[in-house]
C-alpha cells in the first residue's frame, strides 16, 4: 500500500501563535469552559446523537418504545387515580401526561448525568475535552426525548378531544426554562457525584419523595394545609406548572409564575456553572 503524503498544517502562523498556552495566563474557568465548550460544539452534538442512538438502537421496538413508555405510565396511573380526581381534573390523563413529561425530563436527565460523571466521566481523565461536554450532551438528549414525547401527548389529546390552543406558542419558552434549570441542576449534582459517592443514592430518594410531594398526578388542592402553603417553594412545582398550564389549562401561565420560574432556572444554572467550573480542574484528579 502506498503512503499518502501527510498534509502540512494548513493553519497560518498567526493561528498557531494563538494556540500558545500558558497555564498561568488562563482565563477564569467560568469563562474558559464556555469558550472551550463552544470550540468543541461538534463533539457535544455528536455525543447527544450517540446517546440517543445507543439508547434505542438495540431494542427492537426502538423509537416506538420511547413513545410508548410515557403512554403506559399514564394509562396505569389513570386507571389507578382517574376516578378519584375526575371532578377536580377533567381529562385527567392530559393533566398527568403533561406533568410527567416535565418531571421525567428534569429527573431522568439529572440522574443520567450524575451516573455518567460518577462512572468515570467517560474520557475526562484520558484526553482533554471540555469538562462539561457530557453533561451538556445528556441534557440535550433529555430535551430531544421530551420533544419526542409530545407525540403521545398529542395522541391522548386527540382521543379526549382536548382543545389545542394558541397557548401552545408559549411551550418553547417553558422548555427553555426547563432546560436551563435541568442543566444547572445536572452540573451541581454531577459535581457532587464525583466528590461523594453516595450522592446518587441520596438523590434517588429525593426524587422518589419529590414525585409524591409534587402535584404531578394529583391536583394541588389535595395537599394538606401546611404543604399547600409552601407549594410555591417547590421548584419542581413551578417548572411543571410552567409547562402544564399552556397544555392542560389552555392558558399562558400568570406573570408571577413566569417570573419566579425564570428566576429559579437562571439562578440554578448560574450556581451550577459556578460550582462546576470552580471544581473543574479537580475532576480529572478525582474521577
Amino acid at each position: 500500500m502506498i503512503d499518502r503524503t501527510v498534509a502540512t498544517n494548513p493553519r497560518s502562523t498567526a493561528e498557531v501563535a494563538a494556540l500558545a498556552y500558558d497555564s498561568d495566563l488562563r482565563p477564569p474557568p467560568f469563562v474558559d469552559e464556555l469558550v472551550q465548550l463552544w470550540r468543541y460544539r461538534d463533539l457535544v452534538l455528536l455525543l447527544t446523537g450517540n446517546i440517543l442512538k445507543n439508547r434505542y438502537k438495540r431494542s427492537l421496538l426502538g423509537i416506538l418504545w420511547m413513545l410508548l413508555n410515557p403512554l403506559l405510565q399514564t394509562i396505569v396511573l389513570a386507571i389507578a387515580f382517574g376516578a378519584l380526581f375526575q371532578s377536580a381534573l377533567p381529562h385527567y390523563p392530559i393533566y398527568l401526561l403533561s406533568g410527567l413529561l416535565a418531571w421525567n425530563f428534569v429527573t431522568q436527565t439529572t440522574q443520567y448525568a450524575m451516573g455518567v460523571m460518577a462512572g468515570g466521566g467517560g474520557l475526562l481523565k484520558r484526553i482533554y475535552i471540555p469538562r462539561a461536554t457530557y453533561i451538556v450532551a445528556v441534557v440535550g438528549n433529555g430535551l430531544v426525548n421530551s420533544l419526542v414525547s409530545i407525540v403521545p401527548l398529542l395522541l391522548v389529546m386527540i382521543v379526549f378531544q382536548h382543545p389545542l390552543g394558541a397557548s401552545w406558542a408559549f411551550l418553547p419558552f417553558s422548555l427553555l426554562i426547563l432546560t436551563a434549570f435541568t442543566l444547572g441542576l445536572a452540573l451541581l449534582l454531577s459535581t457532587a457525584s464525583v466528590f461523594f459517592t453516595d450522592s446518587i443514592d441520596i438523590y434517588q430518594i429525593v426524587v422518589q419523595a419529590g414525585f409524591f410531594l409534587t402535584p404531578i398526578m394529583y391536583p394541588p388542592s389535595v395537599l394538606p394545609g401546611p404543604l399547600n402553603d409552601w407549594l410555591l417553594l417547590n421548584p419542581f412545582y413551578l417548572l411543571i406548572e410552567l409547562f402544564r398550564t399552556p397544555i392542560y389549562a389552555n392558558a399562558v401561565p400568570d406573570a408571577g409564575l413566569i417570573a419566579s420560574a425564570t428566576a429559579l432556572a437562571l439562578a440554578t444554572l448560574l450556581t451550577g456553572w459556578t460550582v462546576f467550573t470552580r471544581r473543574v480542574d479537580q475532576l480529572a484528579y478525582r474521577l
Binding site: N9, R11, V16, A17, L19, A20, Y21, D22, S23, D24, N50, N54, G122, L123, L124, K125, R126, I127, Y128, I129, D281, A284, Y285
Partner: peptide
Amino acid sequence: ARVLRPTRGRLRLRGRVAPLLELGAGFD
C-alpha cells in the same frame, strides 16, 4: 496534554498538541 492541570507550577507551550496517550480513547 492538559488532561491534568498541575497542582503547582507552570506549563507553557506553543501549537497544537496531538495526544497519543491511548489510541482510540473515546471510541464507541
